[in-house]
Design a protein around this nucleic acid. Sequence first.
DNA 1: GTCTATAGGCAGATAGAC
DNA 2: GTCTATCTGCCTATAGAC
Lengths: 177, 177
Amino acid sequence: MSDTRTRILDLAEDLTQKVGFNGFSYLDLAEEIGVKNSSIHYHFKAKADLALALVERYRSVHKEAFEELDRTLETPKERLEALADHFNGYALNQKVCMCGMMAAEFEAVSPEVRQALALYFRDLQGWLTKQLAEMRHPDPQQGALQFVCALEGSLLLARLEGDATIVGRSVDAFVNG
Amino acid sequence: MSDTRTRILDLAEDLTQKVGFNGFSYLDLAEEIGVKNSSIHYHFKAKADLALALVERYRSVHKEAFEELDRTLETPKERLEALADHFNGYALNQKVCMCGMMAAEFEAVSPEVRQALALYFRDLQGWLTKQLAEMRHPDPQQGALQFVCALEGSLLLARLEGDATIVGRSVDAFVNG
DNA sequence: GTCTATAGGCAGATAGAC
DNA sequence: GTCTATCTGCCTATAGAC
């Protein structure tokens, strides 16, 4: 059973990936969930509080997913493929990475959210660095940075062109040789 | 002498790259330029008209800049370096690519603007493909796609991290090697 | 081409009852 | 926790004078 708070977070995350954090209102959330907008304010007093909760949850969910991939998949190549698949799923739903979207909305978010966004990207880059190191990439850290940029950029292009294959093609060189 | 229309476009382009197209209002433009907001409406009846004019001008300016690079620089490597410098300039001013920003705001823009955005990226990718072909890149077209994604993604990261060197590092492999 | 004045709508947010 | 009711402010946009 999902309580209202969780339903708000789920819906807000989905909307942020589709229309941006500033692209929806508390009223949008309220109507979709079936409560009044003051109830949203009860759970997240200001919209800035919602933003921070969203990014912290997104980061924590992804951090755990990275560990899960490390546990369940044998080779770094398989893990990178799984990650690419995950982002490809966003593209298939006309979504971008939530943190990439908020990075685009940089000027509109609080310093706390900016910090949380930076931590998400640090997690992602750190995990990628480990995988590339294991694959004997000549410069794992730089490769990981390039991987992150490729993912975030490709999601923007994929949605615009209506072509989800762009995600896979943009990271192809890192996943394979 | 820059007429009001041009000053509106210049300011709106700058603001779009910094705060997004939906991050500023006609009132913001009016106050900065020193007219009333109804004057902005005289030049661009609806904000959607301004968006289209912005993207079309951006595309045309860049298209000419590509031709200029082809004329004035000897080697494709020099041209790619010049392009990377150009985007690096955005990062140094806490800006992203205007079309990358609008691609993030995809759901909020009209079909006409989406089409114009796609054409910009097609121009950019086409020009990059030519340069990479001249450098005997094994797959110029895919390389160009990866280059575009790297540029757009790196600008988001660079601003978030406050580190403009991310742009250069993300496209390093294409410009060199 | 720019102005004054204004309309209508929606945003984020709060007070207080249940 | 959720509701009703409400406030204030900003947004896009328009009518009509100069």
